[in-house]
Design a protein around this nucleic acid. Structure first.
Length: 423
RNA sequence: GGAGAGGUGUCUGAGUGGUCGAAAGAGCCCGCCUCGAAAGCGGGUAGCCUGGCAAAACCGGGCUCGUGGGUUCGACUCCCACCCUCUCCGCCA
């Protein structure tokens, strides 16, 4: 969310933002709503000031034993007026708040302008694609052949877009999560294990609600939802708190399952692990001072890259353009890993600086010594999506006979150097 | 699930219808003192909305004592509902 005063005074900047992001925002509606709201508020407040003054006078007269009945009658009438005018003002205020919650964040000046992914800018590449003297197969073929992945039985248990891992497949999924967490902990991130279920306030605080309710699973008859990303939990753990400035930046990481309804994704990535209703993810998260957030974003991306490098997987880093960024983000880098079967890169991490956008929604402040409290900046990034890393390993490390060589760094976590071609 | 207690500022914690945005203490900040620090002494220290104004500083007004309603000229204080926390009992991985 944006600061209302700033938004009002710099509307032209937000008109530009909407054009750059390719979204429609009703600025005319805002102008009239904002103006009427303010007029109503001042009218109500004038009445309240009158009442407060009279109340003091009534108290004084009663103490002095004087008569106050005329004032009392007058104030009864004023109070009724306040009630009626107040209701209208509150309705306008609620509408304005609802509107403000749907305005996306402003992209940072370093973000390229563009409508879709074609305007994204590749920042760097690491490693090189593996060479095969045979035609590399997609991960679902290798994995189902090796008996480490079973989609059909997962469908019996739940529905399509769920996976069941078996044997070394399950162990590699678990091992990857541990490997990620251990690596990040060694670089200053405190491991958190949060609830996987979150409430409406938490989702509103990160910008997931009110706009993206359809992308999530809602628990019927409750205020609770299955978490779509632990970014929600990690942000909300400090919701409505003022943090000690000396503790910043705060660096945390978490492994959780993530749940997405994938509404609107029908027909997309229907085969394999790429797009599931449930997947595991290790998230990196930072609470920083405003002036250090962009520097911290670069190091957060590097922290996510580190685990791919240790696994020896070829990847590139892409700076997303204005039209391809998420709702809450000011600047986002995606990390994309190489997939030999499709001969293309696949998103495996998304690292965003939301500046104060989420902090303002979530009420997360810090207080500098002797200064006024300010909103922190929040940064989030996958480090990494576990299921997608799993499939990248299966594809990049596959052998001609259908077996998979486990990357060296991961071997202690899987307990073997190779997944055999057959169970 | 049942019974009881309670939710007040950065924190602890007082306040039971009228100068209460809120005592006291702690923390933090600024002075004095000191070679410097500690101690001591003095002062300061919430957020949001709104108007003066285009903005900063500043000044005025309004709101905020878990949330939402109600009673009242007036609510931290009384009433109702809900949420949350703690203790005990029950159940349970």
């Amino acid at each position: 969310m944006h600061d209302l005063g700033y938004f009002r005074e710099h509307l032209d900047e937000f008109v530009q933002m909407a054009a750059n992001r390719g979204v429609n925002i009703d600025f005319e509606g805002f102008r009239s709503l904002d103006q009427e709201r303010r007029e109503r508020i001042t009218a109500v407040e004038r009445l309240k000031a009158e009442r407060n003054k009279a109340s003091e006078e009534i108290a004084r007269r009663k103490k002095a034993g004087e008569d106050a009945s005329a004032l009392l009658a007058e104030m009864k009438r004023v109070s009724e007026e306040i009630k009626i005018a107040g209701e209208r003002a509150e309705a306008l205020d609620a509408s304005l708040r609802d509107f403000m919650l749907t305005v996306p964040n402003r992209p940072h000046s370093s973000v390229p302008v563009g409508h879709d992914a074609s305007a994204n800018v590749e920042v760097r590449r690491w490693g090189s694609p593996p060479k095969f003297d045979f035609k590399p197969r997609p991960h679902w073929e290798i994995a189902e052949g090796a008996g480490i992945l079973d989609f059909q039985r997962a469908t019996k248990i739940a529905s399509t877009r769920f996976a069941l891992y078996r044997g070394l497949g399950a162990r590699m999924e678990r091992g990857l999560a541990s490997f990620f967490l251990d690596t990040h902990a060694a670089h200053g991130y405190t491991e958190i294990l949060p609830p996987f279920i979150v409430n409406t306030a938490a989702l509103t605080g990160v910008g997931q609600l009110p706009k993206f309710a359809a992308d999530m699973f809602h628990l019927e008859g409750t205020d609770l939802w299955l978490t779509p990303t632990s970014e929600v939990e990690l942000t909300s753990m400090y919701r409505d708190e003022t943090l000690d400035a000396d503790l910043l930046p705060i660096k945390v990481c978490a492994w959780t399952a993530c749940f997405r309804s994938e509404a609107g994704a029908a027909g997309k990535d229907t085969r394999g692990l790429k797009r599931q209703h449930q997947f595991q993810k290790v998230e990196l998260f930072k609470f920083t001072r405003p002036e250090q957030s962009y520097e911290e974003q670069e190091s957060l991306v590097a922290d996510a890259e580190r685990v791919l490098q240790k696994l020896g997987l070829h990847y590139r880093v892409v700076l997303l353009c204005t039209g391809d960024m998420g709702f809450a983000s000011s600047k986002t880098y995606d990390i994309e890993v190489w997939l030999p079967s499709a001969h293309e890169f696949m998103e495996i991490s998304s690292c965003s600086n939301t500046e104060a956008f989420q902090a303002r929604r979530s009420g997360i402040r810090f207080k500098p010594k002797g200064g006024k409290s300010e909103f922190v900046h929040t940064l989030n990034g996958s480090g990494l999506a576990v299921g997608r890393t799993w499939l990248a390993i299966v594809e990049n490390c596959q052998q001609a006979d259908g077996s998979v060589t486990i990357p060296e760094a991961l071997r202690p976590y899987v307990g073997t150097d190779r997944i055999p071609a057959k169970p």
